[in-house]
């Protein structure tokens, strides 16, 4: 790890000003991706601004037809939240299956989506559930948030404060994990919310999460699992690596979509 300066922020304002006054400051959320990256000397921030002391970034609340999760809420807290489990059980299940227990104890929803790893789980949930990402100065629809490989619509110094998920009628997530890393080779979140069916795919494409209109059309309003299975997805543009060919990933998109649809009931 290269050396850096460390600051513990006590408020959102504190965090934003500390980051902006640093030469090359990074926010530190749970650190589950950032710290391994630093250890491998793949990043060299001048300052780390630790968000863990900002209490208003932590917690889950339900209001009307949506659930809002503070950005520093851990995966374990989301997985065990009574609100999430009762309103969006698919999201609680997804959070309870991210990484391993130790990652879930420290990793946060804000950290995960700000990082936008192309094989992470949360981006699929955000897109399929049509979430809104709330930052310190605006609200960004999930469809506009994830812009590419490890890239998001966040501007330098912009801080995610919460994510709001509309409560779906039906939803489920199915993941086929990479045997080594256990990240998604393909993960598909399907959801039916207020008359709209969405299917968001993670892991398959190196530009990150995407919606599959073929799958969505096949699923229809009833989330028809056999129709999803029958969809033939093109392998063009999908990842091809030592763990899975693009053809295999294409095939798994249909299979995982179908399984998610079955699970959504």
């Amino acid at each position: 790890m290269y050396d850096f300066k460390y600051q513990l922020a006590n408020s959102q304002d504190d965090a934003v000003s500390a980051q902006s006054s640093a030469e090359d400051g990074s926010f530190l959320a749970g650190g589950m991706t950032l710290i391994p990256t630093l250890k491998q000397r793949l990043a060299q921030p001048s300052d780390l601004v630790d968000l863990s002391g900002i209490s208003d970034l932590i917690g889950v609340s339900a209001e009307g037809d949506s659930v809002t999760i503070g950005s520093m809420t851990t995966h374990a807290e989301v997985a065990s939240s009574e609100i999430v489990s009762s309103k969006i059980p698919a999201l609680a299940a997804l959070a309870g299956n991210i990484g391993d227990p130790q990652v879930r104890n420290r990793g946060t929803i804000g950290g995960s989506i700000a990082n936008n790893d192309p094989a992470a789980d949360y981006p699929a949930a955000c897109v399929a559930l049509n979430a809104t990402i709330i930052t310190n100065n605006r609200k960004i629809p999930a469809d506009n948030f994830f812009t590419g490989l490890f890239e998001t619509a966040l501007e330098d110094g912009e801080l995610i404060t919460a994510v709001t998920f509309p409560i779906p009628d039906k939803a489920a997530y199915a993941k086929f994990p990479n045997p080594a890393s256990r990240y998604a080779i393909v993960g598909v979140m399907v959801a039916h919310t207020g008359g709209e069916t969405r299917a968001a795919v993670t892991g398959a494409s190196d530009s990150g999460v995407f919606r599959s209109s073929e799958i969505e059309n096949a699923l229809g309003d009833n989330l028809d699992s056999s129709a999803a299975k029958a969809v033939s997805i093109s392998a063009d543009g999908l990842n091809n690596d030592i763990h899975a060919s693009s053809e295999y990933r294409a095939h798994l998109v249909s299979i995982m979509a179908s399984r998610a649809a079955t699970a959504a009931g």
Partner: peptide, 11 residues
């Protein structure tokens, strides 16, 4: 439980 290799002492 936490992985102490993925946490700074200052955290």
């Amino acid at each position: 439980s936490a992985k102490s290799c993925t946490m700074l002492a200052v955290q």
